[in-house]
C-alpha cells in the first residue's frame, strides 16, 4: 500500500509555506468557483438561513474527503449530488418534510445541467468585482486591507500608519479577509432575497 501525501498540507519539507496537495489544487480550481451556484441551491432548498454556512462546510468536507480517495470526473455534478444527499440526510434526521424542498430535489438533475455563471469566466469583471467587494467593507477594515494588500505594509506598519494597536489591526485584517472573500463568493446569502 502506498501512502499518498494528500492528507497533509505540510507533509513535504520544512518550508515556510504549507505544501499544497493535488486535491487542494483540484478543490480550488473545480469546486470553489461553483460556490455561488451551490449557495443558491442550498438557499433555495432550505428555509433556515442560519444553517447555510454549516451546510456549505459539510458539503465541502464530504467532497474533499471523496476526492482524497479519487478525484471525481464531473466536479459540478458531484458537488450538487453531494449537496442534495446532505439535504436529504438532514431532512430525514430532523423528521421534517419541507414539501417545497422535496419538489426541488426532484428537479435537481435539470438544475445541474443549466449553466450557471461561473466565476472564472467573469475574468473581465474581476477588477471591478474586487473593487466593489472592497467598497462594501467597513471603513477601517478597508483601510487596513488597502494598506496591507496594495501598499504592501506589514501589520506593524499598518498600526503605525493608522495610529492604533497591532492587535486591532490584526482584527481588522482578518475580518477584512473574511468579508472580502465572502462578498467575492456571492455571500452572505442573507443579503440576497428569495423571490
Amino acid at each position: 500500500m502506498i501512502e499518498k501525501p494528500d492528507s497533509g498540507l505540510g507533509t513535504t519539507g520544512p518550508g515556510m509555506a504549507p505544501a499544497v496537495s493535488h486535491v487542494d489544487v483540484w478543490f480550488g480550481r473545480e469546486i470553489l468557483p461553483l460556490e455561488a451556484a451551490l449557495m443558491e441551491f442550498l438557499q433555495h432548498n432550505w428555509r433556515n438561513r442560519a444553517d447555510l454556512t454549516d451546510f456549505r462546510q459539510d458539503v465541502y468536507v464530504r467532497v474533499y474527503q471523496a476526492a482524497q480517495k479519487q478525484i471525481p470526473d464531473h466536479p459540478r455534478q458531484f458537488l450538487f449530488t453531494t449537496a442534495r444527499n446532505l439535504l436529504i440526510d438532514r431532512v430525514r434526521h430532523e423528521q421534517v418534510i419541507p414539501i417545497e424542498a422535496a419538489a426541488d430535489l426532484e428537479a435537481l438533475e435539470i438544475a445541474v445541467d443549466t449553466p450557471a455563471p461561473d466565476r472564472t469566466l467573469m475574468a473581465r469583471d474581476e477588477l471591478r468585482r474586487v473593487q466593489a467587494a472592497l467598497d462594501r467593507l467597513p471603513a477601517r477594515e478597508r483601510e487596513a486591507i488597502l494598506l496591507g494588500r496594495v501598499e504592501g505594509l506589514s501589520r506593524r506598519e499598518i498600526a503605525l500608519r493608522m495610529g492604533i494597536a497591532e492587535s486591532a489591526v490584526a482584527q481588522y485584517l482578518s475580518r477584512g479577509i473574511r468579508g472580502l472573500v465572502n462578498t467575492l463568493c456571492n455571500e452572505p446569502p442573507t443579503v440576497r432575497r428569495k423571490p
Binding site: 492528507s7 497533509g8 498540507l9 505540510g10 504549507p18 487542494d24 478543490f27 480550488g28 470553489l32 460556490e35 462546510q57 465541502y60 468536507v61 474533499y64 474527503q65 474581476e126 477588477l127 474586487v130 473593487q131 494588500r149 496594495v150 504592501g152 479577509i177 473574511r178 472580502l180 472573500v181 467575492l184 463568493c185
Partner: peptide, 27 residues
Amino acid sequence: LGQSLEHRVAFLRLDFEWKRTERLAAL
C-alpha cells in the same frame, strides 16, 4: 490544518479566494 477537514476546507476556501485578489494588488 491537520486537526480536521473542516479546518482544511475553511482555510483552502479563504486562501484560494484571498490569493485571487493578490495579483490585483496592482489596484
